[in-house]
Structures are given as C-alpha cells and as structure tokens.
Amino acid sequence: MKEHIFLIIGMIALTDVCDTCAQLILKSSINSLGWQVSSVKKSLSLILQLLKIPRVWFGFLLSGFSLLFWLAVLARTDLNLAFSIDSMRYILIALASVLFLKEKVSLRRWLGIACVVCGIVFVVLG
C-alpha cells in the first residue's frame, strides 16, 4: 500500500511537471513575441505566430504526455486523492514562473497560492 501511494504521487508529479513545462514554453514564447493582444484579429495572428515557433509544438507534445500520465493515474486511484495531490501544480507553476520567467511573486501572491492549494484539498476531501 505504501509503495502504491508513492507510485501514484510520482505519476501525478510527472503529470504536473509535464504540464508546467508546457505552460512555461507557451508563456515564454508569448513573452518573446512581446505583444499585448487586445482584439480578436490580433489574437488569431498571435496564434499563427506562435505556431511558427518549434518549441510550441514540443509544448503540445508535453501536454499530450501530461494527459496520458493523468489518465494512467485515474485508472489506478480514486478521484479525490488524485485531485488533492494534483493541486501541487499551483506551487510548481509559481516556482517555475519565478525561476524561468523572472516573474515577481510577492508574499501576498504566495499566500494566495497557498490558500488555493489548501482550499482545493478541502473541497476535494470534503
């Protein structure tokens, strides 16, 4: 049982790492274009520009892997446990944003993220 739970946690971690990397790639690609999109027409041309960047496609691939790992998790465990552990993605995203995107995450934002993570665990287990 103990080994089983570690396997589940590891697989969910893999899901979340893949997803975080995919988001990082997307966000850094958008940043590299340096646009602030404000109309539908512009947002469509943003997408076209994004699709020309090779690593964006790698990001799609990672999203696909993330989905596969997640399906494998769901086949093995119950939803409540899976979703509680999955809330670690909010922390991963914040860490990755600080480390790789140089976003400034203030104490207030960290506090907010901590509240969201605890809240999700409560909602799922409640």
């Binding site: 934002r109 907010g112 993220i113 901590a114 969201v116 605890c118 809240g119």
Partner: peptide, 9 residues
C-alpha cells in the same frame, strides 16, 4: 479558502 486565495493573487 479558494476565493480568498484568488482574491489575494
């Protein structure tokens, strides 16, 4: 808690 967290962020 989630609402509070979203407001803080």
């Amino acid at each position: 808690l989630i609402i509070a967290g979203v407001i803080l962020v």
